[in-house]
Design a protein around this nucleic acid. Structure first.
Lengths: 203, 203
DNA sequence: AGCCCACTAGTCAAACTTGATTACCATAGG
DNA sequence: CCTATGGTAATCAAGTTTGACTAGTGGGCT
């Protein structure tokens, strides 16, 4: 699972056709350069790499309209579209991903139909609950946490995290089921970028 | 902040002197190859790199005692010791690190004196509270979350996370203040590795 | 006009990560 | 005695990330 790919594909897709600098600016606006590894070098690299793999087609374009070197515009191919949706589904469904992946997934969640988004999030809750139960099962029946020494704190940290994440997910499911937001196939597009000056989680 | 470096330094330090395979096995035992990027290639790379930077000294050792290529043993230098403690402090103090960094920090927390550990964790709680307040401040006074569209969900996710993480941290502070675990300078060493067969968070 | 600054757009080397692969030895089974 | 298996210890190529750097254009200031 690559956050960079998800973010880059999602950004190009929103424009239909976009060059590197555009993607880079979008993601900067999202604050993604702070909470993810999607920094300029990675973005340009991802674009080239995905073009090589035919997830994107590169259009060589005339010297830039507003200064700077000539730029290349990219566009999703059919395969790119599929990859994008698969990455997005994975980001929302998986319990074992980093927060940056989940964050990207939430940022693009409206690209999925409502029913599918809800169902992926329910998978997520189930996976979190199952994993939490499994950890507790491994750690508590034979011995009290105290016997593990400070390493038991790692278990507490993870279990706490799983519970919290499941709670947040259940909240989102509820809001989606009550009809919040405009999802894929439901008419007009909703807001797509983070507001300027938003406080950054990793600032 | 590199998790790999923290984990590798911590592991070598526990042995006093260790070769790559030993470190690799330790970390596998911790489950670190699952929840962090500390995989064999990265471990060997980190050892060589840190040796080049004089954080470790490499002892070229005779052909391995039990099969396989000759091995190199490593040992922390004074600078390595300092770097280790700095990384460890950062992992416990910072609110803006990934969960793998925090997990590693908790794993090695007993390498710090009790008072210092508690004080770092208090910094952590304060940073989390401050950041949470800042985000809420930026997002709520002028407008309801609803106006942000689905992007408001990202804020909810982060705020939820910050609250949950602060809660866990406060719990750990309490336990440390009640005298839990054997910390640096307090006599005998406590348990240092994860129990075999522990359920993995990213399994 | 001449100069500096900011913005646009991207490249590059160095570091790091990944997953597969190599190479060596011991030992158990046939 | 020979070979397959499994553990030990590490390397390597390919891919990714980082942070610094290049380079062109336009505007403002003196």
């Amino acid at each position: 699972m690559s956050v960079t790919r998800l973010l880059v594909l999602g950004a190009v897709r929103q424009h239909g056709r976009a060059h590197g600098y555009q993607v880079r600016n979008d993601l900067e606006f999202w604050g993604a350069h702070q909470w993810s590894t999607a920094k300029p070098g990675s973005i340009y690299h991802a674009l080239k790499q995905m073009a090589k793999q035919s997830l994107l087609i590169a259009h060589e374009v005339a010297p830039s309209a507003a200064g700077g070197p000539p730029r290349t515009e990219y566009e999703l191919t059919e395969a790119g579209e599929e990859t994008y949706l698969e990455l997005l589904r994975g980001a929302l469904r998986a319990h074992d991903e980093r927060i940056d992946v989940l964050t990207s997934g939430v940022g693009f969640i409206v690209d999925l139909p409502r029913a599918e988004a809800v169902s992926l999030l329910k998978e997520r809750v189930e996976a979190l609950d199952a994993w939490r139960a499994e950890v507790l099962d491994h750690w508590t029946p034979q011995s009290t946490p105290a016997e593990w020494g400070h390493i038991g704190e790692i278990m507490r940290l993870w279990v706490h995290n799983a519970e919290s994440s499941a709670e947040w997910t259940r909240g989102l499911i509820e809001r989606l089921e009550s009809g919040a937001y405009v999802m894929a196939g439901e008419g007009e597009r909703s807001v797509e970028v983070l507001p300027e000056g938003m406080a950054n989680p990793f600032g």
